[in-house]
Amino acid sequence: MKVIECERLVKAYCSMKALDQINFSIEENTITGLIGRNGAGKTTLLKIIAGFWRGTEGEVKVFNRSPFNNLEVSMNSIFVDDMMSFTYTLNLGEILDEAKAFYPNWDEEIAFALLEYFNFNPKQTHQSLSKGKRSTFNMIVGLAAKCPLTIFDEPTTGMDAAVRKDFYRALLKDYLIAPRTIIISSHHLDELEDILEDILLVDEGKKVLQLPVDELKEYAVTLSGRTAVVMQTLQDKEVIYKRDVNIDNCSVVVRNNFSHEEVKRLGIQVSPVTPTDICVYLTNQTKGAIDDVFNKS
């Protein structure tokens, strides 16, 4: 079953299109990583899915309904980011108690166990928390709500490496116990990729690709060797990125859809490209490379 379906979705701010005819769907009970550069349209997309904002054109369906102003959708989904606001009249413990009334699947036990694990004082207020602590608390709410659609928009902002690691593990364990549809946007793809099933890569408001992580890992390879030799093998290949190592040597990232034996025999080194690097290469909007900026002077 498809939980989210987007068809030609557009979100325009004045003349700028944050989302530009984006098409995709997300299957039930999968963990999808939403990846993209700053300003690619990730948050806009997630807020429209969560029903916070309305699209300008096109269609979004969440649980087969239009999410904007829809009670059914908001009851079954939660949107977690670092701007989540809670009332300052309640302390953390009371917030967790109150949340029970909002979410039918609320898991009180997990909520308080995580609160204790991460060393929170239940008497503290949300406003008094540091940036990282606030993100951690929001994450606890997001997990304990056990919503059929759980959206995390850069949930790890401000978290230290140890907490991020715990968060990924907690997310996976909780998903194994209570499978649900999870979308996470993040700039830490390298840390996250193992727990993801799919990756949705967006750039300039458009979908670049949507693939299982395993396939993305084999999506491209780097060919490195003598420039003259590498160049002559490129004719039938799709070049994604090229970098000169020095005058004689270069490395080229190409689509991985050919037999490696042939190029290896020519003395070219074939090495894999990490999903993080593929995403960077595929969304390269800068003019030339960073080296060019410095080479001009």
């Binding site: 999968t30 963990i31 990924y168 593990r169 996976l172 364990k173 194994l176 193992d194 727990i195 993801l196 099933e197 299982p212 992580v213 395993d214």
Partner: peptide
């Protein structure tokens, strides 16, 4: 697949 996912902290689909 679920046991393996838990053991290695990987997605059960993997």
């Amino acid at each position: 697949q679920y046991k393996l996912a838990d053991m290695f902290t990987i997605n059960p689909a993997t």
